[in-house]
Design a protein around this nucleic acid. Structure first.
Length: 476
RNA sequence: CGGGCUGUAGCGCAGUGGCUAGCGCGCUUGGUUCGGGACCAAGAGGCCGGGGGUUCAAGUCCCCCCAGCCCGACCA
């Protein structure tokens, strides 16, 4: 008997960690707060990378790479930025055995080093827009870490763009937010809310931060991606100006946007169950696993049948094959369910006799018997159905745990009980936001787009006229 | 960084101050099984997290340290 996964309703945190460890996605490292991403976890990241990278290229971005180490003074050039990141910096003070003249910060994010370079590269409106992305690791000395959701070092991509006008920068900010939304919904089967962050939740150094927010199965919110309009803050800090057609000199407008390995955490917490990982087919590194079922007597003929099937399936799907005779079929079923492969194909003597296979879908456990000549077609349909079902299931879950609340007593009760997303009018003041956090631990996750008009009424906290309809939730 | 819990075989755990530290799972070898986590047999595997003390005697008691998890404050 393998290790059991703690059921979600017993302890959600333990369940999450059990999945990560037992599905072999990651492991704890010798260094506190860091994790080792194992092949099954890294394969997921590679899938995420390849899809997103395609989307970035399709929207005109190019990849580049900037150094890991940043002169400490660079961070200090943007006041809010340094204030936001100073507490979580790791600093290199010795190099080659000698104390460094200027300490080097291990990047927590790359705005400063990138904008120090943009100063060299941008002089004219002809140099704009400059649309660069980098895939990198960053390091933030977090007090409390959790596999994938928050680790000291994590992998991400960070886009850094430069524009001639505020309008273009805003357009880019929203374009990339939309790329994230599309990716989350279509590939991760993760329904997300999009909108702006409140002042207190925005990125250190940004004019405005936008985010995609998803609801996990414990009804907490997870910020799955952010897109920042940086205005001219970094251009001013690094003195990046350009001349327009009329010869006028002005500061460049900037955006930055990123998603990280946290997405893998989102994927797990949104879809998985007490049997293990559940992966959307469009992001699953392995879509199909083939398990032959045989006795010693018929081993040869069954393996022959199953391996020919595997060859056929590999023409269209990513396939793993598990013909090993050292564990029983039942064991393998459980094992592959734990690993999250969307479709399992069982082939045994009965199937060979009837020229069929058994298909089992991971999300519902439903079995079907399919003729050999229809297998590819049926798997295609199943993968599609699973993808849609996971999205739909997550969406319905979010909707059923989202409540419109106008009364503060009800609001507090909501978060004392099951919780979820509270959609409530808010006056816009940081004081009310802080009070909510104090009283309920919930924060404003996002100010959804197009909701200003719906914000008729009064702030759920203070009773003053509302300016926004905000989404409040406890979050990761 | 505060509070709590836990460190004993790869994993999960037992282990009144006393002799050679156990159990389950996993692992190795051989054999029988095989359509939902099979079974038999024989093996391998331990600086009892680290350091200091108390004691005739410490996995067990005391002190310090370290690590991990959970709960807070901080954050993607």
């Amino acid at each position: 008997m393998a290790d059991r996964i703690t059921p979600r309703n017993v302890n959600y945190s333990d369940w999450y960690i059990d999945i990560v460890i037992q599905a072999k996605l990651a492991d704890y490292s010798p260094v506190k707060g860091c994790m080792v991403i194992r092949p099954r976890g890294y394969a997921l990241w590679e899938r995420i990378q390849s899809v997103l990278d395609g989307m970035f290229k399709a929207t005109g971005h190019q990849n580049a790479y900037f150094p890991l180490l940043i002169p400490e003074s660079f961070l200090q050039k943007e006041a809010e930025h340094v204030e936001g990141f100073a507490p979580e910096l790791a600093v290199v003070t010795i190099g080659g055995g000698e104390p460094l003249e200027e300490p080097l910060v291990i990047r927590p994010t790359s705005e400063t080093i990138i904008w120090s370079m943009y100063k060299k590269w941008i002089q004219s409106y002809r140099d704009l827009p400059l649309l660069i992305n980098q895939w990198a690791n960053v390091l933030r000395w977090e007090k409390r870490t959790r596999l994938f959701l928050r680790t000291t070092e994590f992998l991400w991509q960070e886009g850094h763009t430069a524009h001639a006008t505020a309008e273009e920068a805003q357009e880019e900010t929203l374009r990339m937010l939309n790329v994230y939304r599309t990716f989350a919904e279509e590939y991760l089967a993760l329904p997300v809310l999009t909108g702006r962050k409140s002042e207190s939740e925005k990125f250190a150094g940004a004019v405005a931060t936008y985010a995609i927010e998803a609801m996990m199965q414990d009804r907490k919110a997870l910020q799955a991606g952010t897109s920042h309009n940086l205005g001219q803050n970094f251009a001013k800090a690094f003195d990046v100006t350009f001349q327009d057609k009329n010869g006028n000199l002005s500061y460049v407008y900037a955006t930055s946007w990123g998603v990280s390995t946290r997405l893998i955490g989102a994927l797990i917490m949104a879809h998985s169950d007490d049997k293990g990982l559940v992966l959307p087919p469009k992001i699953a590194p392995t879509q199909v696993v083939v398990i032959p079922i045989y006795k010693t007597a018929n081993k040869g003929e069954i393996l022959d049948y199953s391996s020919r099937l595997v060859q056929t399936l590999k023409e269209e799907f990513t396939v793993e094959y598990d013909p090993d005779d050292s564990s029983s079929p039942g064991y393998k079923f459980a094992e592959w369910e734990l690993l999250g492969v969307p479709v399992r194909v069982e082939v045994g003597p009965k199937d060979k006799e009837k020229n069929q296979v058994v298909l089992v879908r991971r999300d519902t456990g439903e079995k079907s018997y399919v003729a050999l000549n229809e297998v590819k077609q049926r798997i295609r349909e199943l993968l599609d159905a699973i993808q849609k079902n996971l999205y739909q299931r997550a969406l319905e879950f979010r909707i059923s745990h989202t409540r419109q609340i106008a009364q503060y007593t009800e609001f507090k009760t909501f978060f004392e009980e099951d919780g979820g997303f509270a959609e409530s009018p808010w006056c816009g003041s940081a004081d009310c936001e802080a009070r909510v956090k104090e009283d309920t631990k919930a924060t404003i996750r996002v100010l959804p787009f197009g909701n200003e008009e719906r914000a008729n009424g009064v702030c759920v906290v203070c009773g003053n006229p509302a300016k926004h309809l905000a989404i409040f939730a406890k979050s990761y």
